[in-house]
């Protein structure tokens, strides 16, 4: 019984982090209909920026979050407005090719700037653990899970209650109607991408704290985000959270009871099953009902 509880707890912690890493990808997919293949590289940019800021300012890596998110918000806005938008305008697949190309370029620039060596963010509490009865949890992972849940809640609140969230939802649901109401759709798209990049950066900090990272990891985080979005549904933090938690729990249960080398097998099996049974994901498309 203890083993099951420990395994599920480990899965939930891991799943929370997967969810945060995927939410930006989900939002861009839901609102802009762009499959952002440079998502993983933006996640890693967050990790590298956190490393730089925490070492330069001598502060806890989680405290670098506002700085990292602000930096990537700006980068995301410019990237979408002045690059991706042109690709979206020109052809349906333009954005996929463009984001793939940008990911390749940034990957190599990162190697040039930071070297291909693995990096690591080590906060002061990196090696402490929390005991809840018989369950032992890694303090770093728990703190990262808490950060993930807070950020996902903030994003859900932003989308639901703020004027910006209303405009994003309106644009996603009825682009033409939003445009007729005077919404600057291109600006909203760029803001959505900027918010997504900021959240990808925040996920990068969390990932950088729990895992060693190097530029070679970018594809892993794009792929994980894709799986989470397909499982949970497109466009909402709740969908990303459900997909992430499901992925995390399935991974740890598989590792424990089938074999540590099998999580990828069950992960993709689940993906295929869900595509067959419920292709819109567990929570569906957050913006679909009004289409």
């Amino acid at each position: 019984m203890n083993l099951i509880a420990q395994t599920v707890a480990d899965g939930l912690v891991l799943g929370g982090i997967y969810a945060l890493a995927a939410v930006g990808f989900s939002l861009i997919f839901g609102v802009l209909h762009v499959i952002n293949l440079s998502h993983g590289i933006i996640v890693l940019m967050g990790a590298y920026l956190a490393l730089i800021f925490s070492e330069t300012l001598h502060i806890d890596p989680l405290l670098t979050m506002p700085l990292v998110m602000a930096s990537l918000f700006a980068v995301g806005y410019v990237y979408q407005r002045f690059l991706i938008q042109y690709a979206v305008d020109s052809s349906a697949f333009g954005s996929i090719l463009l984001t793939f190309g940008v990911a390749l370029m940034l990957h190599n620039i990162m190697i040039w700037v930071f070297s291909p060596d693995m990096k690591n963010i080590t906060p002061t509490y990196a090696f402490t653990s929390i005991k809840l009865g018989p369950i032992v949890l890694d303090a770093v992972r728990v703190s990262c899970l808490v950060a993930s849940l807070v950020l996902l809640s903030c994003l859900a609140g932003l989308l639901k209650f703020s004027p910006l969230g209303r405009v994003i939802r309106a644009t996603a649901q009825q682009t033409l109607a939003a445009r007729l109401c005077g919404v600057n759709v291109r600006h909203v798209y760029a803001l959505t991408f900027a918010v997504s990049a900021a959240f990808a950066g925040a996920a990068g900090i969390v990932i950088g704290i729990i895992l060693p990272f190097s530029p070679a990891d970018e594809a892993t985080w794009t792929l994980n985000a894709f799986v989470v979005v397909v499982l949970g549904g497109v466009g909402s933090p709740a969908g990303a959270l459900i997909g992430g938690l499901l992925l995390g729990v399935v991974s740890t249960l598989t590792a424990q009871y089938i074999g540590p080398s099998f999580p990828n097998v069950t992960m993709f099996l689940l993906l295929v099953l869900l595509l067959l049974v419920r292709p819109q994901g567990l929570l569906g498309n957050a913006f679909a009902p009004s289409r």
Partner: peptide, 16 residues
Amino acid sequence: GYELPAKPTDVSSVLG
């Protein structure tokens, strides 16, 4: 003997 995936992200089950 424990075999992990080529790129593991969590080894808590093995450590348990």
